[in-house]
Design a protein around this nucleic acid. Structure first.
Length: 456
RNA sequence: GUGGUUGUAGCUCAGUUGGUUAGAGCGCCUGAUUGUGGUUCAGGAGGUCGUGGGUUCGAGACCCAUCUUCCACCCCA
């Protein structure tokens, strides 16, 4: 080991046990998505740089991984910029591609590009990794998976309601029953900004109020004042945001407070409609949180976020975007979607010990290898078990029994089947139950039913 | 990107104000048991102390740089 091999900061290897757990999350999500009629798509790991730039705000642009051009890229770059050592501007000259930062923007590009192949409303899901050049910390990685569900080409608020049902269903199926599902509407926020006379500061207002539960009203006030928002407006906003509790009543009070703002009224109506469309069981889990803002600025209507009291950051988030495809040349194509952060969900579930025990099992049956013709009998019998729907493997080497037993034990195999000299002569096999330690001699033809009996 | 933090055996960690051959538990390997894992017992292997410089008679301990870990900020799944 001259040089220890390593992987880039913020990326990870996954051992079989971890990988099985991750797949449990993906499978659970996928199953729910499909039950609601969503279909899968995939897009490339890399996009053209200009597809991604400018979609996530200034901060977002910095976190996009740019891919160095191939060939003699320096020869083509402008001498001035190279000499000026301005990394920002040089970057665009030597990089044309980038790793995708999320799945939503590539999806918008995909829809525009494949519009003639799709029928709308188009409901798709997508489970793929994304990359961000963020500093790693708890629940934050440089490579992580998102599980996105979006419906595009429909303005109906039934979609928002359906997504909330999906969110509830996925977390329930994962065994995470105490998540907090919060919703809000950007039109409400926009209306609040307008009625406080700070429409032009909308962006920095949302960023600030999103931190309310973290830094408190004083902190938010400070930040807004620091960013040059008018004091009177700041006070008014903070006052409105004090409203909370039962959604319908809250909305009613809010409506009284933002008199004259058509946009706020519209947002209020939208939230009401979404709540109305929800089944009772889901509606009672959804909180209206007027301080929920979300950083990504392409959201225009409903916004959704899921968190957990024992986890520092959100584990799922999304919202409606009226014109994401517009930038790529397709107007009038509103979409709404949510994204599950698989890695954060994994961390949370691991912390809570919520993964099912059964995920560990590998093969159900291992055949001990006794070499030569006896292993042929094992191979045939293993094949028979597989046709019966059992998972079975034959140890590949003629190793010491002890070693083979240990392998079965380490791997968590339930049964070990021994076909050695004795068994070969008598057409019997020896079955050892590794959990109980019991050992039985059974006729080879009865092996399947014997094991099935034990399993049931 | 800013500030802080961490790195010693495969893993989790000890290692006194700088002082001989760097330790433990678990794991791993071998044997007791050449057809029996997990339990028990006996033995064994394994570390250029993250990396590169420096201070010192002497560095795992001190200094600098760098990488990595975790945390806060920014922002976010």
């Amino acid at each position: 080991m001259a040089n220890k091999p390593s992987i880039p900061k913020g990326t990870r290897d996954f051992l079989p046990e971890q990988s099985l757990k991750r797949q449990f999350i993906f499978d659970t999500a996928r199953k729910v998505f499909q039950q609601f009629g969503f279909v899968p798509i995939e897009t490339p790991a890399m996009e053209n740089l200009d597809t991604l730039l400018g979609k996530y705000g200034e901060e977002g642009d910095k976190l996009i991984y740019k891919i160095l051009n191939n060939g003699d890229f320096l020869a083509k770059a402008s001498e001035e910029r190279l000499a000026a050592k301005d990394s920002q501007s040089v970057a665009f000259e030597i990089s044309d591609r980038a790793l995708r930062y999320d799945l939503t923007v590539p999806f918008a590009r995909f829809v525009v590009q494949n519009q003639n192949e799709l029928s709308f409303p188009f409901k798709r899901y997508q489970i793929q990794p994304v990359w961000r050049a963020d500093r790693p910390q708890k629940g934050r990685y440089r490579e992580f998976y998102q599980c996105d569900v979006d419906v595009i080409g429909s303005n109906s608020l039934l979609n928002e309601a359906e997504l909330l049902c999906i969110v509830d269903e996925v977390f329930t199926n994962l065994g995470l029953n105490d998540v907090r599902i919060r919703i809000n509407n950007r039109k409400i926020l926009s209306g609040i900004a307008a009625s406080a006379g700070m429409s032009e500061h909308f962006q920095s207002m949302t960023v600030a109020i999103d931190k309310l539960d973290k830094i408190g009203p004083e902190g938010v006030k400070e930040e807004m004042l620091r960013n040059g928002l008018p004091e009177a407006g700041v006070k008014k906003v903070l006052n409105l945001l004090k409203l909370k509790g039962e959604p319908v009543a809250t909305l009613k009070m809010l409506a009284g407070a933002v008199v004259g703002s058509e946009e706020a009224y519209k947002g209020i109506d939208e939230v009401k409609a979404v709540l109305k469309a929800l089944p009772e069981a889901v509606r009672e889990k959804v909180e209206l949180d007027l301080t929920l803002a979300r950083g990504l600025n392409y959201y225009t209507g409903a916004i959704i976020e899921v968190g957990h009291d024992d986890f520092p950051s959100s584990i799922c988030g999304g919202g409606r975007y009226d014109d994401l495809t517009g930038i790529f040349g397709l107007k009038e194509m509103s979409g709404v979607g949510v994204s599950f952060g698989a890695d954060r969900i994994y961390d949370l579930m691991e912390e809570k010990g919520l993964f099912p025990e059964t995920l560990k099992a590998a093969s159900q049956v291992l055949f001990v290898n006794f070499g030569k013709e006896k292993v042929m009998s094992a191979i045939r019998t293993a094949a028979d078990l597989r046709t019966e729907g059992l998972s079975a493997e034959v140890y590949p080497d003629e190793a010491k029994m002890k070693k083979q037993m240990k392998y079965a034990n380490d791997k968590g195999v339930h049964f070990v089947v021994i076909i050695g000299e004795e068994e070969h002569k008598t057409k019997m096999v020896t079955v050892k139950d590794m959990l109980s330690g019991d050992q039985n001699s059974v006729a080879k033809k009865d092996l399947v039913s014997f094991i099935n009996d034990k399993l049931s």
